[in-house]
């Protein structure tokens, strides 16, 4: 895999079928209804039950909508994956407007893989890898792969806007 900047954003090239399969899993992971994933992406936030209920009522629905809109955006971008002439591998374009959504979506997918495969902090260390099951090792490789893409895109992660533009606007229209 290689990555490069173009006028429109970032291009990731030479993506093998395995890498593409991992990327196609990103929106599905974000949308997972598995309790382990949901409790990590929408964690308990307040110690007091009354405060937690207030949080669940007022903050969580907006977060859920935002996550789903990111999943939709990533899925749409992945539909544009193309093979280069005379190549079996794919090329992905992530435009500047979509970078923030992609960075967060990749993080969510990495966290979901971690939760779904019952991984621990020790597994993520070099020494811990050998102690993981084959399925867990595959998940760790996918987590690392998505981190590579995330690290590239972080170079374009936006700083706060000087003009006071809201950071958390309408989630549905956020990245369109």
């Amino acid at each position: 895999m290689w990555a490069g900047r173009v006028d429109e954003g970032f291009v990731f090239g030479d993506l093998t079928e395995e890498v593409v399969q991992t990327l196609r899993g990103v929106p599905m992971l974000i949308e997972s209804s598995d309790e382990r994933v949901r409790s990590r992406l929408l964690p308990e936030t307040c110690a007091e039950q009354q405060d937690e209920e207030h949080w669940r009522e007022h903050a969580v629905p907006e977060l859920e909508r935002l996550f789903l809109s990111r999943a939709t955006l990533v899925r749409r971008d992945l539909e544009l994956l193309r093979k280069l002439p005379k190549s079996e591998n794919y090329v992905l374009l992530v435009t500047h407007q979509h970078v923030n959504a992609w960075v967060a979506a990749l993080n969510a997918a990495r966290l979901a893989l971690f939760a779904l495969n019952d991984l621990t902090a020790e597994h993520m260390e070099t020494e811990g890898f050998s102690g993981a099951s084959a399925k867990q090792q595959e998940a760790i490789v996918r987590i690392s792969l998505l981190a590579e893409l995330q690290a590239v895109l972080l170079g374009d992660f936006e700083a706060p806007d000087d003009d006071g533009e809201p950071f958390f606007p309408d989630p549905v229209g956020d990245y369109d």
Binding site: R40, L42, P43, C46, A47, A59, L63, A104, N107
Partner: peptide
């Protein structure tokens, strides 16, 4: 939390 940082609130 929108960026998936593990965040809690404490009075």
């Amino acid at each position: 939390q929108s960026h998936h940082l593990l965040t809690t609130l404490e009075k």
